[in-house]
């Protein structure tokens, strides 16, 4: 049985009159990649910064491996490493100096610090940028420097706030592999993102946060299954119309949308219904050109749960 890496209990954070996070309760288990999904301003970053002891809860508490962020903040900081959404460096800083100092402050000796910094910089393709000043780096490279801090630290809980924002597509895939490797080496990873593809690609469990409140939590398949009739059977058929009798039979499975010679049926557990649908087409002598079963996307889940479109909100 996995132990709780992070336990968020009745956590509320207010900035003046504004409530950024409202009575959040979450449990994140050891060695999982946990995603916080929500649009900008939903309270993801506030939650992550409080886990990292940057903010203090207004009420409630957060425990990291049983240690309270309010009463044992120093112990928590020894367990947590964070890659910020906006890279935190002065413009004249150089990545190598920055990371070497970071390695020293998280506990490495000077010789070990130099070794691990080189190793991580090479892994992330940062070595050639080591002596550039921060303002000379692209947005994606700056984000990699942030991630490098966590990889150097190898904390028990790694917090990554939008780790691949501004990173090119090729590098994104490489970084996702790096994140999974970090998990495999024993780190619990918490990722805040509004990139649904990223969430699907790396997260094992997801919490959807919207307007400071937890709206849903579960594995990706659990969340997708939570949408009634969320699967779509998409059929492209020969001809421009289908017989009324066939249409009426298909309607029994779920809501139908048609567009030229393509038909979409919204069903539950589409993989179980698809054979019946094929059979109906065959019996009505309508030739199927192409058929596929599509799962709902996380965007669909988000829309269903919050009534808002994640992309539009972000």
């Amino acid at each position: 049985m996995k132990s709780k890496a992070v336990e968020i209990v009745n956590f509320t954070k207010k900035f003046g009159d504004f409530t950024a996070v409202d009575n959040l309760n979450l449990e994140i288990y050891e060695n999982e990649v946990f995603g916080l999904l929500g649009p900008n301003g939903s309270g993801k970053t506030t939650t992550l910064l409080t886990i990292a002891t940057v903010y203090k809860p207004t009420s409630g508490d957060i425990y990291v491996f049983g240690h309270s962020v309010t009463r044992e903040d120093y112990v928590v900081r020894k367990l947590v490493g964070i890659a910020f959404q906006e890279p935190k460096a002065m413009w004249i800083d150089k990545p190598y100096d920055l990371l070497t100092w970071h390695a020293r402050i998280v506990g490495y000796s000077m010789s070990d610090a130099k070794k691990i910094v080189r190793e991580v910089m090479e892994l992330l393709g940062l070595w050639e940028h080591r002596n550039k000043q921060f303002y000379q780096l692209s947005g994606g490279t700056r984000k990699k420097v942030e991630l490098a801090k966590v990889l150097i630290q190898k904390p028990r809980v790694a917090i990554l706030d939008e780790p691949t924002a501004q990173v090119d597509v090729l590098s994104k895939h490489a970084l996702w592999d790096v994140i999974k490797k970090l998990r495999d080496e024993g780190t619990t990873v918490i990722i805040a993102t509004n990139d649904m593809f990223e969430a699907e690609r790396v997260c094992e469990k997801i919490a959807i946060i919207y307007k400071g409140k937890l709206r849903a939590m579960g594995t990706i398949s659990e969340l997708k299954d939570s949408i009634p009739r969320g699967d779509v059977i998409e059929i492209q058929y020969e001809g421009s119309r289908i017989p009324e009798k066939l249409f009426a039979s298909l309607e029994e499975y779920g809501r139908i949308e048609t567009q030229s010679s393509t038909l979409r049926i919204y069903v539950e557990k589409g993989e179980e219904k698809v054979l019946d649908v094929i059979d109906l087409f065959r019996k009505n002598n309508v030739k199927i050109l192409r058929i596929m079963v599509k799962e709902p996307t996380l965007d669909d889940v988000f829309t269903y749960i919050t009534g808002a479109k994640l992309r539009e909100e972000s």
């Binding site: 903040d73 947590v80 964070i82 910020f84 935190k88 460096a89």
Partner: peptide
Amino acid sequence: RREVTQYLVSLPVTR
């Protein structure tokens, strides 16, 4: 102003 302080306070060092 640039919130670099957030990085410093997240480090394993006492306040």
